Amino acid sequence: MDLKETDILGANIGQHWYYRSKANAMTRLLSGVSPLAILDIGAGSGFFSKKLLSDTMAKEAWCVDISYECDSDALEAGKPVHFRKSVDKVNADLVLLMDVLEHVDDDVGLLKDYVTKVPSGARFLISVPAFQFLWSGHDVFLEHKRRYRLKQMEDVVRQAGLTVKHGAYYFGAVFPIAAAIRLVSNFVQRGRYKAQSQLSQHHPFINETLAAMSFAELPLFVPNRLAGLTVFDVAEKS
């Protein structure tokens, strides 16, 4: 989760359709999984790990982000949240990498490094932006290195030493709209991408409409290996 987006949405991040929907997708993919300790890599504000602390039996979360000014601790639903610039070994049974791997040159290396920091049996939940042809000024603004196809993401997961449990695309319902807008915009810009976030505070009607479209997609989300704006992968350290 990028702190640049947190700065844009502020305290309303939990109401924004994109983050609400991504949290719903996370919950759906983790159905039947009961984590006790969460390691949240590139956590930003810790939105996703805080959601799990509030809604599950998880007892603590370690939020890691090199953008933090200093180490600190807080509480969420009465449970400890440890904000750290880096960590060594962590006894976590769930590792989150929500929109992280697209930011680094060596995605396999970063993932492999964190595989060594957690015990065997730990689950990994990973999300990345989908399809390179959707590259835009938004990616430039967020300092992305690439976008992924599902199979490409699964290859990265395997190279890092993890076993792929499930992969899927999400935001398939809004995919045609977003793809059309980006392709037209990219044609007009002729490859001269302006670094500019496309994330904004929408009118309540638009926000709720997009949230409803994404919510309606959830029953079809898990088997969706066709198209979407985000790739999700669930993997396990054997």
Rank of each mutant, 00 (worst) to 15 (best):
L30K: 13
H16V: 01
L29Q: 06
V33Q: 12
K22C: 00
A23G: 03
A23I: 08
A37I: 14
I38A: 04
I13S: 01
A11F: 05
R28Q: 11
L39T: 08
S21C: 03
D40E: 10
A25L: 05
D40A: 08
L39N: 08
K22Y: 00
A11G: 00
A43C: 15
I41S: 05
A23P: 01
I41A: 06
L36N: 12
Y19Q: 03
L30T: 07
A23Y: 04
I41F: 11
T27G: 00
I13K: 06
S34L: 09
L39P: 05
I13G: 01
L36S: 12
A11I: 08
N12W: 07
L39A: 07
I41L: 15
I13M: 10
L36M: 10
I38M: 09
G42K: 14
S34A: 13
Y18P: 00
S21N: 04
A11S: 13
D40T: 09
T27N: 07
H16N: 09
G32D: 04
L29D: 03
M26L: 15
N12R: 15
A37T: 15
W17E: 01
V33M: 07
I13H: 02
I13E: 03
A43V: 04
L30S: 06
I38Q: 10
Y19N: 02
A43L: 07
L29W: 10
L36A: 07
N12P: 00
A25Y: 14
A11P: 02
P35H: 12
Y19C: 00
P35W: 13
G14T: 07
N24A: 14
G42C: 05
W17D: 01
V33C: 09
Q15V: 01
I41K: 13
D40Q: 11
I41G: 03
D40Y: 13
I38G: 04
Y19H: 10
L39W: 12
I38W: 13
S31I: 01
H16W: 03
R20L: 08
I38T: 07
T27Q: 13
T27F: 11
Y19E: 02
S31V: 02
A37K: 15
R28Y: 04
I13C: 00
G14H: 10
L30M: 13
Y19V: 01
R28D: 04
Y19F: 15
S31Y: 06
Y18S: 00
G32R: 12
M26W: 05
L30N: 09
G42A: 07
G32F: 09
A37R: 15
R28W: 04
A43R: 09
L29N: 05
H16L: 03
